[in-house]
């Protein structure tokens, strides 16, 4: 976070508000839980602070990003002392499941969506091709907790979710794609 001038509103206050904005497609989970906030810049202005919020999209084609942009702008704009808000999406960093907080993982499970298993391999995103073709990893059932599940399809109701089935409790469920 960068402070150019001390203002009545601090980057920490802005960050706290941004963190609580819900994901429109998974309302129990917030922008902060998903680790989407990359930077908050607060600059002094004649009639109040100008705020720039930089977010990392979880999925580049996600139609929810536009809603998130508006919701974040509205929440920050409601803070006292803020005169202008700009919300940007940045690809300077690639979003990975490691960015989801422990609380976010728990909330996803409560929403019956399995959080991605923590990545086994070091380094950035997995290459698209390796000797063994990339395969959708197994997920733990968010309903009963069993690991006895099948990965049915890497596609689901939203771009970021895959479809699974739990052989233990016999429920279909969704997972966030790694």
């Amino acid at each position: 976070m960068t402070v150019h001038t001390a203002q009545s509103v601090t980057p920490e206050q802005v960050r706290a508000v941004v963190d609580t904005v819900p994901d429109p497609e998974m309302p129990p989970v917030t922008v902060g839980d998903l680790g989407m906030v990359r930077d908050v810049v607060v600059e002094a202005g004649a009639d109040g602070a100008r705020v720039v919020v930089e977010l990392i999209p979880t999925y580049s084609g996600c139609p929810a990003t536009q809603v998130i942009r508006e919701d974040v702008a509205e929440a920050v704009g409601a803070l006292t002392g803020v005169s202008a808000v700009e919300v940007r999406f940045s690809f300077a960093e690639t979003w990975t499941p490691e960015r989801i907080s422990e609380r976010g993982r728990e909330r996803l499970r409560q929403f019956a969506i399995a959080p991605p298993e923590r990545r086994q391999r070091p380094g950035g995103c997995l290459p698209a091709r390796e000797d063994a073709p990339f395969a959708l990893p197994a997920a733990r059932c968010p309903i009963c907790g069993s690991g006895d599940t099948t990965a049915d399809s890497p596609f689901g109701p939203t771009p970021c979710r895959s479809s699974h089935y739990c052989r233990a409790c016999r429920n279909p469920f969704e997972a966030m794609k790694p």
Partner: peptide, 12 residues
């Protein structure tokens, strides 16, 4: 970076 992460599933 972001695009390749998603394209893995298409290729699969």
């Amino acid at each position: 970076g972001a695009i390749r992460r998603e394209e893995r599933y298409h290729l699969m």
